[in-house]
Design a protein around this nucleic acid. Structure first.
Lengths: 264, 264
DNA sequence: CAGTGGTCTAGACCACGCG
DNA sequence: GCGTGGTCTAGACCACTGG
């Protein structure tokens, strides 16, 4: 057996109390002076221990007099990748998101922003256009119960936006962009989905108000008509608060065993 | 503008040099004494700065005389969720994984392990059996170029394993379990996929040899025959080194614009 | 105000791994 | 051996927030 440094022993001890349920979500860890006393260690050593737990996403510090290190909550929202933009979908992707959130008992809100950007190489490749081409970026910061939860960046090639000029409107498009495009002859029939997990950039951490130790789940969807790629959507989710689900194949059996999937 | 603490300024400075390309993958940051000199700060302060970058997954410490803080590499392996176990698939899931890895120019290896477990509540729900029921757990630790890259845990309900007894073999099943089950009348026709991003547990960090600041991408797949769920597979990927892709709808268009998808 | 964690310093000794 | 980062101590002052 290897000898662990003291701060890791302390962290392991506290972690065990969390996973065993002795300390529950929302409970406070002992304060730093208490931990120093308990483990006979200096302040920096106990701080190294709690910092480890913070970076593991298990605890979070709360400021102020009655603050402290608090065991983080782990309620996750489920997001259905296949519901948002299926060709035959009855709702636009915006309403799809909102209705999913509200169905799970939360309050949904979002903020739009429109800019014109030069496409970085990786996105240009997905849209099959030259790097540095112009594109319309429609950004949507989505909040749940007032707290930012995910950011969706959708890029449309410039030539498409010039033909479907509503894409240049700096506001939410009521029927949803997917349906709008379908009405103009750009019905999406194929999707290429990518999933990546990583630590947030400082910009993302700011936008989503992520505490340390929170990951992001990035879902990149390229949408195709029968002719060409027409959009790239990048969804950045706060890791611990979101889950993406998707079904493949025979949906009937799945609905039978997972009734909540049958909705809509 | 808010005043940032010194260690965040230092971290921001170094981060900017990394994302701008001034410091490239594999390059070493200045040593701690150099950083103290450069920024006129104490050792602990510069260590706070580098610790931040480590936890962001940007740099990694390398031990020894010529060690130091090194900018991490970001080559990612692509894993196709839809290739592994489609009903009509020509290869078992094991070979599918191996061939994907080798196709991308890496060397693949894996280790099996078989145990009998009592199902925790969340998995029992997916398999539609009572919590604490017995299940066969087939674990596969997958390595790329000798370094562990992902762990796949697949659970089969006990009654199924008693009927298809090869599932109890503590070795790789040559043709793949999916095809084996199909041969015995348990052809999988539906899948329920879940994606989650989070920090690794200490156990996972050990199994996958994850440095600090590395996330995991968890892909949970429940497989159904036309009658019932027959398996739950939990794939835990080292975040920064893996990407999961999947296609939906009209595959022909996608293949046209993403030729690498046409393979197999 | 009092008590929480956040930032910062100065110094000590240890563990690793290349030469 | 020697330079790297890893662990640990003791002490100081600051920022936030509830009572």
């Amino acid at each position: 057996m290897v000898k662990l440094p003291r701060y890791r022993q302390i962290a392991g001890d506290l972690r065990a109390k969390i996973v065993s349920g002795e300390l529950r979500e929302g409970d406070r860890l002992p304060t730093e002076p208490q931990l120093q006393e308990l483990y006979d260690a200096s302040r920096n050593t106990v701080r190294d221990a709690t910092a480890l737990l913070v970076n593991e996403g298990l605890v979070e510090s709360v400021r102020g007099r009655d603050g402290g290190m608090v065991v983080r909550r782990r309620d996750t929202l489920t997001f259905h990748a296949h519901r948002a933009e299926m060709p035959a979908g009855k709702t636009g992707e915006t309403d799809a998101w909102r209705s999913e959130v509200e169905q799970q008992g939360y309050e949904a809100s979002q903020e739009f922003q429109l800019t014109i950007e030069a496409l970085p190489a990786d996105l240009a490749e997905r849209l099959h256009v030259e790097p540095e081409s112009s594109a319309v970026l429609r950004r949507c910061v989505r909040s749940i119960n007032g707290a930012p939860s995910s950011v969706q960046d959708t890029y449309y090639p410039m030539d498409l936006a010039e033909e479907v000029r509503e894409l240049l409107s700096p506001r939410d498009i009521p029927q949803g962009t997917t349906r709008l495009l379908a009405e103009r002859g750009y019905s999406q029939t194929g999707y290429y989905d990518e999933y990546v997990s990583r630590m947030p950039t400082p910009e993302e951490a700011g936008l989503l108000a992520l505490p340390a130790g929170t990951t992001v789940l990035v879902h990149t969807r390229t949408g195709y008509t029968s002719q060409r790629p027409v959009r790239v959507s990048i969804n950045v989710f706060a890791g611990d608060r979101n889950r993406i689900v998707s079904t493949l194949g025979d949906a009937a059996v799945i609905a039978q065993f997972r009734p909540e999937e049958a909705a809509e």
